[in-house]
Design a protein around this nucleic acid. Sequence first.
DNA 1: AATGAATGAGTGTTCATTCAT
DNA 2: CATGAATGAACACTCATTCAT
Lengths: 216, 216, 216, 216
Amino acid sequence: MSTAPAPRVIAAQIKDEALVQARRARIAEAAARVFREKGFHTATIRDVAEAAGLTQGTLYNYIRSKDDILYLVHQDLTARYTADVERAIEGLSDPRARLRAAIRAFVRAMRERHADIRLIYQETHALGRDSLHAVLAQTDAFIRLFGGLIEAARRDGMAIDGAPRLAADIVTFLPVMLALRRWRLRHALDGPEAEDELVAFLLRGLGCPEEIADGS
Amino acid sequence: MSTAPAPRVIAAQIKDEALVQARRARIAEAAARVFREKGFHTATIRDVAEAAGLTQGTLYNYIRSKDDILYLVHQDLTARYTADVERAIEGLSDPRARLRAAIRAFVRAMRERHADIRLIYQETHALGRDSLHAVLAQTDAFIRLFGGLIEAARRDGMAIDGAPRLAADIVTFLPVMLALRRWRLRHALDGPEAEDELVAFLLRGLGCPEEIADGS
Amino acid sequence: MSTAPAPRVIAAQIKDEALVQARRARIAEAAARVFREKGFHTATIRDVAEAAGLTQGTLYNYIRSKDDILYLVHQDLTARYTADVERAIEGLSDPRARLRAAIRAFVRAMRERHADIRLIYQETHALGRDSLHAVLAQTDAFIRLFGGLIEAARRDGMAIDGAPRLAADIVTFLPVMLALRRWRLRHALDGPEAEDELVAFLLRGLGCPEEIADGS
Amino acid sequence: MSTAPAPRVIAAQIKDEALVQARRARIAEAAARVFREKGFHTATIRDVAEAAGLTQGTLYNYIRSKDDILYLVHQDLTARYTADVERAIEGLSDPRARLRAAIRAFVRAMRERHADIRLIYQETHALGRDSLHAVLAQTDAFIRLFGGLIEAARRDGMAIDGAPRLAADIVTFLPVMLALRRWRLRHALDGPEAEDELVAFLLRGLGCPEEIADGS
DNA sequence: AATGAATGAGTGTTCATTCAT
DNA sequence: CATGAATGAACACTCATTCAT
């Protein structure tokens, strides 16, 4: 429902649009795997092609450059956690319930998709100018999705007196900690407990601690 | 006061220890500049040497590999924001005041050192095994510094009922947003305002909102 | 009338001979266009196929290799200026008039077909062994055509006392200057004037300057 | 004495200017050899490096791109035949003698350096924009050198009534035939004979056939 | 201790050609 | 007879690292 930003167009040598879609999905998936393991710069096109079950030459029929691959990965991974959140609020109509569900879903996504999230935060800067803008636009749309949920909850009467203008940013950033601090949290506090604490912290910070009671 | 972790030892060709220290400081500073601009992988040893006013050959008298340089940079930048915080609480003895001052200082450091922080979060994964462990240990010590401050404040009677075990992590992660979301915040909410909102949010999240009143 | 050299045979996948002829004409024409713009090596088979309105696969039904295309182009372009000259002397029977008309026509062809001529002189060396021999034989026949015209004029009484053995070569080479030195002549001396000067120079060099009077 | 055009500057990684000069001379010489044999596009950087007795990496310390090498070759070969001509007129002061000597020297250079000349005429179009302009400027200067010689001879009283404005171009183009038509002339008319005929033809074309008598 | 030239393995990318449908 | 996806060998160029002076 959120206005999805126009994705960057990647030119292909292949005419069969359905084939292009399918292959690119496979490439994005395989590349994500490779990049997670070795990092974008260390990974070679050869690695990606092999992981995707394609030859180098064939790979280049579907993308134009290594940057295209990185863009494909970003686009795909961002779409995934966005879908997680959208799916979580799909049936709900109560604004407060929608916000709570969204936060929960996002927090969970950050924990479950930690490797993907780390990849994004590490390699976004390696994107070319156009790819970067497209990805940031996509991320921006996601953050604004939360902005809308918060605004609706407030209009519905929820008392949000904390960080009025930063709220959407905070809510979409703090949970990233579960991915970027995993090296530390894994040892200290694992699993869903961390999720619960984070959700509570966020709601309290927003100024609506009472929501904790009926959370989850 | 916090137990500083043993730094990784970098072997040098040069005997004069003072010279080694001085040169490495210059290298770290120059490399940080170069890496911020071009990223670690894109930057070449030549770039770093030139920026440091050394020749390539000379550079290699003080470091053993490109990874050493990245480690030097991490070590240096991490030490800087750590020092910011330590300096902020230096004269203070009241546990609550110490915690508040530390949070403030850290938030400010994240905003002012945004380029350095972004560099750290983007390139840490490029570190070699040993360098990575050393840097994570350093970061861990910093987080534990906050853990200690929080614990002290609690013992002093501060009501911290939010995220007891995650508190130190949250406090040392959320402000990073000022650096990593700068592409967005710059347009929305610039300068010290964002700092204030963040501090308030953190304190509220910790469960001690009354602290806001006498903040700063 | 001159004995046209046996052209190199290009094997085709297609049985319909008329279709093969038609397609190859289109390919030669399209390829010439592409090669003039980008050069033979820089141009891709894809470029040629597109320019000819064929797919890559179809293209390969009419030629066997990229070299075949280059040969087709050479063969075609050489035939064109040869036809220009042959057409110019078609109705004439007076040997001296025939020679003069041939020279004029060739000079004009070099100026008008400058792009084609440049293409020939630049890319002939890229031809494979067999193609090269075939093209050189074709060119040789063209030069011998002039040799015959000169010989006939001499037998008719024209005083040709200059460069008796090189005459045909000179006459068929000097005008090429209008194509290969176009980068310079365009600025200095454009259009038909250059043609006139060249013709006069050639006749004077051949030792029959009196021919200038009734030229054109 | 002629105003040499400013050559294109090629950036080097090496500081020792004398070394750069020496190496580049070797590279130009070796590359010319390789390009003559295989052509510019077919020759690889590896071929050139090997022929120059350098490793690939070292080669790139003295040039920036393959285009640089081609430029180096052009610049070198053009300078060679230019030097041939300049050397031939060095001691002479009589304008007519100077012109005659220059023509003779150029004709001889074209025959002796036929392989280099063919290389130039085949590969000039492969030069990049800047390189091309630099080379054309160099060639233009050479042609203007002849323009000056012709003008001086005319002022001295030599009757030049043929192709006044094209004279310099013709004189510097026709002899190229000895290189570009070598595939034909070798069989028909070899050695110095062809040279003599060409010189005679040129002088006759210029309208001063009496010069033939005291030629050579 | 400083210099800077040499090295060579490695990388992204291209493209002529083939062939199953 | 047409199509267009697949192939893989090849190539220009980079750069961290070494080492003789």
